[in-house]
Amino acid sequence: MTQQPPGELDGARVLQFALIGPAQPATGNTFHFGDFPDVVRGLALACYEGGKSVYLFYCDAEWNVLTDTCHSTSQDAIDQARFEFGGLEFQDL
Protein backbone atom coordinates (compact mmCIF):
# COMPACT_ATOMS: atom_id res chain seq x y z
CA MET A 1 0.00 0.00 0.00
CA THR A 2 1.12 3.51 -0.71
CA GLN A 3 2.02 4.92 2.67
CA GLN A 4 -0.14 8.00 2.35
CA PRO A 5 -3.14 8.94 0.26
CA PRO A 6 -3.18 11.56 -2.47
CA GLY A 7 -4.21 15.06 -1.40
CA GLU A 8 -7.69 14.53 -2.83
CA LEU A 9 -10.06 11.55 -2.81
CA ASP A 10 -13.40 11.60 -4.64
CA GLY A 11 -13.09 15.37 -5.03
CA ALA A 12 -12.59 16.00 -1.30
CA ARG A 13 -9.42 17.39 0.33
CA VAL A 14 -7.74 14.83 2.59
CA LEU A 15 -6.95 16.15 6.07
CA GLN A 16 -5.69 13.08 7.94
CA PHE A 17 -5.24 9.38 7.34
CA ALA A 18 -4.57 6.09 9.10
CA LEU A 19 -3.20 2.85 7.72
CA ILE A 20 -4.94 -0.46 8.42
CA GLY A 21 -2.87 -3.60 8.94
CA PRO A 22 -2.50 -6.50 11.37
CA ALA A 23 -1.96 -4.07 14.26
CA GLN A 24 -5.36 -2.43 13.54
CA PRO A 25 -7.84 -5.31 13.64
CA ALA A 26 -11.56 -4.87 13.08
CA THR A 27 -13.18 -4.62 16.51
CA GLY A 28 -16.38 -6.40 15.54
CA ASN A 29 -18.36 -3.44 16.93
CA THR A 30 -20.01 -2.93 13.53
CA PHE A 31 -21.25 -5.30 10.88
CA HIS A 32 -20.17 -5.02 7.25
CA PHE A 33 -21.28 -7.30 4.45
CA GLY A 34 -18.78 -9.61 2.80
CA ASP A 35 -15.05 -9.26 3.32
CA PHE A 36 -15.20 -5.47 3.70
CA PRO A 37 -12.97 -5.23 6.83
CA ASP A 38 -10.40 -7.45 5.11
CA VAL A 39 -10.03 -5.17 2.07
CA VAL A 40 -9.89 -1.85 3.91
CA ARG A 41 -6.24 -0.81 4.09
CA GLY A 42 -6.55 2.88 4.84
CA LEU A 43 -8.90 5.45 6.30
CA ALA A 44 -8.94 9.11 5.34
CA LEU A 45 -10.67 12.13 6.83
CA ALA A 46 -11.69 14.55 4.09
CA CYS A 47 -13.81 17.65 3.44
CA TYR A 48 -15.46 18.89 0.29
CA GLU A 49 -14.85 22.52 -0.64
CA GLY A 50 -17.41 24.75 1.03
CA GLY A 51 -18.75 21.89 3.13
CA LYS A 52 -18.83 21.68 6.91
CA SER A 53 -19.03 17.89 7.23
CA VAL A 54 -16.04 15.59 7.63
CA TYR A 55 -16.08 12.33 5.71
CA LEU A 56 -14.41 9.15 6.86
CA PHE A 57 -13.35 7.35 3.68
CA TYR A 58 -12.69 3.62 3.85
CA CYS A 59 -10.10 2.81 1.16
CA ASP A 60 -8.43 -0.19 -0.44
CA ALA A 61 -4.68 -0.66 -0.90
CA GLU A 62 -4.57 1.85 -3.80
CA TRP A 63 -6.58 4.49 -1.89
CA ASN A 64 -9.72 3.85 -3.93
CA VAL A 65 -12.71 4.86 -1.82
CA LEU A 66 -14.90 1.84 -1.01
CA THR A 67 -17.46 3.65 1.13
CA ASP A 68 -17.72 6.55 3.55
CA THR A 69 -19.49 7.90 6.59
CA CYS A 70 -20.35 11.55 7.23
CA HIS A 71 -19.60 13.32 10.52
CA SER A 72 -20.02 16.75 12.09
CA THR A 73 -16.39 17.01 13.26
CA SER A 74 -13.01 15.39 12.66
CA GLN A 75 -13.09 14.02 16.20
CA ASP A 76 -16.46 12.33 15.53
CA ALA A 77 -14.99 10.69 12.43
CA ILE A 78 -11.89 9.54 14.35
CA ASP A 79 -14.08 8.17 17.14
CA GLN A 80 -16.07 6.16 14.59
CA ALA A 81 -12.89 4.82 13.01
CA ARG A 82 -11.51 3.75 16.40
CA PHE A 83 -14.87 2.14 17.24
CA GLU A 84 -14.43 -0.03 14.14
CA PHE A 85 -10.66 -0.64 14.11
CA GLY A 86 -8.30 -1.01 17.07
CA GLY A 87 -4.90 0.64 17.41
CA LEU A 88 -5.48 3.48 14.94
CA GLU A 89 -3.14 6.45 14.78
CA PHE A 90 -4.18 9.25 12.46
CA GLN A 91 -1.53 11.39 10.77
CA ASP A 92 -1.86 14.79 9.13
CA LEU A 93 -1.40 14.75 5.37
Rank of each mutant, 00 (worst) to 15 (best):
S74F: 06
T67E: 14
D35V: 12
L56V: 09
N64E: 15
L88P: 03
A44E: 00
Q24R: 07
N29S: 10
D60S: 06
V65R: 02
L66D: 08
V54E: 02
A18Q: 01
V54W: 02
F36I: 03
D10R: 09
Q75L: 15
T30L: 11
G7T: 15
A23T: 13
G7L: 14
T27K: 07
D92K: 15
L15D: 05
F31D: 11
E8K: 08
W63F: 09
L56H: 07
E62L: 13
F90P: 00
K52V: 13
N29W: 06
F31Y: 12
G21C: 11
I78S: 02
L88I: 01
D10E: 12
R13L: 10
P6I: 05
F57R: 01
D68M: 06
D38A: 13
A18F: 01
I20G: 00
A23N: 09
T67D: 14
F85W: 15
A18N: 03
E84I: 04
G86L: 13
D35A: 13
F83P: 02
F90W: 02
T73R: 04
C47H: 09
T30N: 12
W63I: 03
V39M: 07
Q16W: 01
L93C: 07
C47N: 08
L19T: 06
V54C: 10
G28D: 04
G50H: 11
F17R: 01
Y48V: 11
L56D: 02
Q4N: 12
E89H: 15
G21Y: 10
G42C: 07
Y58M: 03
E89D: 14
I20H: 04
E8R: 10
T30D: 11
A12L: 05
H71Q: 11
Q16D: 05
A81M: 03
P25D: 00
S72I: 15
T27V: 11
L43V: 00
F33K: 12
A81H: 00
D92W: 13
A23I: 08
P37Y: 08
Y55V: 07
G34Q: 13
I20T: 05
N64S: 14
Q16S: 04
T2N: 14
R82C: 10
S53Y: 08
T27N: 07
R13F: 08
C70G: 09
V40P: 00
L19A: 08
L43R: 04
W63H: 00
P25A: 04
G21E: 15
E62G: 13
Q3F: 15
L88T: 03
F57S: 00
D79P: 01
F31Q: 11
P22S: 09
T27P: 02
V54Y: 00
T2W: 12
N29H: 09
R13G: 01
L88N: 02
L93W: 08
G11S: 05
G7H: 14
Y48T: 13
E8N: 10
G7W: 10
I20D: 04
T73C: 06
D60P: 00
V39K: 06
L19Q: 06
K52Q: 15
F31W: 12
S74K: 08
G34N: 13
V40A: 00
S53W: 07
A26C: 09
E49C: 09
Y48K: 14
G11Y: 08
T2R: 15
G87W: 03
A18L: 01
G87I: 06
C70K: 14
F33V: 12
E89G: 14
S72F: 14
F36R: 02
D38R: 12
W63D: 04
